[in-house]
């Protein structure tokens, strides 16, 4: 996988430069719009606080993704065994998927410890793409290969291990890449819903707190970290996908 990042990086640099120039040229006060240089300074000055919060948010995201993966894959395997289970449970999964997490969060906060509720929010939004993609993948095994497995009386377990799971891997990884970004969004939404009642140390909480104090540069600094975290999660999961599929999958094989 060889990618040229020149074009997006140059575009981004131009935008940031224009932003910096505009703030200085029109003398926009930092309470309205801080210049990129000021945001960078704030990031450096508040680094202990902000990076601590970044770790909190990243930890929630990571464990939510782990939880979503475990539940999503196990449910998908369950669906592949039982058509009835799929028909009975999939609509419920859809209901969770289409309900905005921000609307569920206050309820979760009533039923659970704030830390767990935030984790649940993040896991809830992340789990659907993993479930639906993995279920599709498990059902996509080649018919002739399925015939081959039954020809040699391979049981359900062997067919799952050697045929269905490898078939589902690219689908799962595609779902995981979407779920990574969603888990971060879910974590942020959960933190905002938890507000001051929560543990109150994640990045979303920093943004709200800074907002109350009209510390706009710090709001931006925290936002920059969230953006960077999202990009890093996407890059890491793409890299994982590449590592797992580079030898054989059509998506990773360079054209001759």
């Amino acid at each position: 996988m060889k990618r040229d990042f020149t074009a997006p990086l140059v575009t981004l640099a131009i935008l940031i430069a224009a932003w910096e120039f505009a703030v200085r040229f029109f003398a926009i006060p930092p309470q309205v719009l801080p210049a990129p240089s000021l945001i960078l300074q704030t990031l450096a000055a508040d680094s202990a606080l902000l990076f601590g919060s970044l770790l909190v948010t990243l930890r929630i995201t990571f464990f939510a993704l782990l939880l979503a993966t475990a539940v999503g894959v196990v449910l998908a395997v369950f669906f592949s065994i039982s058509r009835f289970a799929e028909r009975a449970l999939f609509p419920i999964a859809v209901i969770f998927q289409v309900t905005p997490v921000i609307a569920i969060a206050p309820l979760l906060l009533i039923y659970m410890e704030p830390a767990n509720a935030v984790l649940a929010c993040a896991a809830l939004v992340a789990f659907f793409p993993i479930l639906s993609n993995t279920a599709l993948g498990l059902a996509s095994a080649d018919r002739q290969l399925r015939d081959l497995f039954s020809l040699y009386d391979a049981g359900w377990w062997k067919a799952l291990l050697y045929l269905r799971l490898p078939t589902a891997l690219p689908y799962f990884l595609g779902g995981l890449r979407i779920a990574g970004g969603l888990a971060l969004i879910g974590a942020i939404v959960g933190e905002i819903a938890a507000g001051s009642g929560g543990a109150g140390s994640g990045l979303a909480w920093r943004i709200m707190e800074a907002g109350h104090r009209v510390n706009i540069p710090r709001m931006y600094a925290a936002l920059v970290l969230i953006v960077l975290a999202g990009v890093a999660i996407f890059a890491a999961l793409s890299w994982l996908q590449h590592l797992a599929l580079r030898r054989w999958h059509a998506s990773a094989i360079a054209p001759e």
Binding site: D142, Q144, D147, L148, Y162, L163, L169, W248, H249
Partner: peptide, 15 residues
């Protein structure tokens, strides 16, 4: 000991 050859090669692409 039965062998089956399908219309397509039907090889597992990951193996």
């Amino acid at each position: 000991e039965t062998g089956f050859v399908f219309q397509e090669p039907a090889l597992m692409p990951w193996a």
